[in-house]
Computed example of a mutant assay.
Amino acid sequence: MTGESWREDALCRQTDPALYFPEAGGSPRDAKEVCEACDVRRECLAYALDTGQQHGVWGGVDQRELRRLQRARRHAQAA
């Protein structure tokens, strides 16, 4: 898939966007379950990492996991 065309096939388009941005203390579990079944999960995660997303569930990872991946990516690029 090129550009952001992957978004057209994303399962999250069929659910409430609020699911992917839980309130403080809320669980990202339901969003992650949708992501697990999504065919474009890898593209979504790559987009989040490439664009520096800080909040929400992207590609099946929550914002804490996303930040950890971003730090690891920066560290690997600096090495």
Rank of each mutant, 00 (worst) to 15 (best):
R64C: 00
F21H: 12
R42G: 12
R64Q: 07
Y20T: 08
R13L: 10
Q63T: 12
Q63H: 09
A78H: 10
E65G: 07
R13A: 12
R7H: 10
L11N: 14
Q63R: 07
E43F: 05
L45M: 08
S5I: 09
R29N: 05
P28V: 14
E36I: 07
P22L: 00
V57A: 04
T2E: 04
A24Y: 02
E43N: 10
G59E: 04
A10P: 08
D50H: 08
C35A: 07
Q77W: 01
R67S: 10
A72H: 08
G56P: 10
G52N: 13
F21R: 05
T15E: 07
H75T: 15
E23Y: 01
R68L: 03
L45H: 11
R29I: 11
D39C: 01
L19E: 07
A79S: 12
D50S: 13
Q14V: 07
G26Q: 11
Q53Y: 03
C12Y: 06
Y20V: 03
L45C: 08
A76N: 06
P22M: 03
C44L: 06
C38I: 13
A37I: 11
G25T: 10
A79F: 01
E33D: 11
D50C: 00
R13Q: 13
L66E: 06
C38F: 07
E4K: 09
S27T: 14
R73I: 09
P22T: 13
G26P: 06
R42A: 14
R64G: 01
R64H: 07
W58G: 09
T15S: 05
E65D: 06
R74Q: 10
A76P: 00
L69C: 04
W6H: 05
P17A: 05
A18S: 10
G59H: 08
D9H: 12
R68H: 02
M1F: 05
A79K: 11
D62F: 01
E8V: 15
H55P: 00
G59M: 03
S5P: 00
A31L: 03
C12L: 06
R68N: 04
R67N: 06
Q77E: 13
W6Y: 06
Q77I: 09
D9R: 15
V40M: 04
R42V: 14
R42F: 09
L66G: 08
P17Y: 02
G59K: 06
E43K: 08
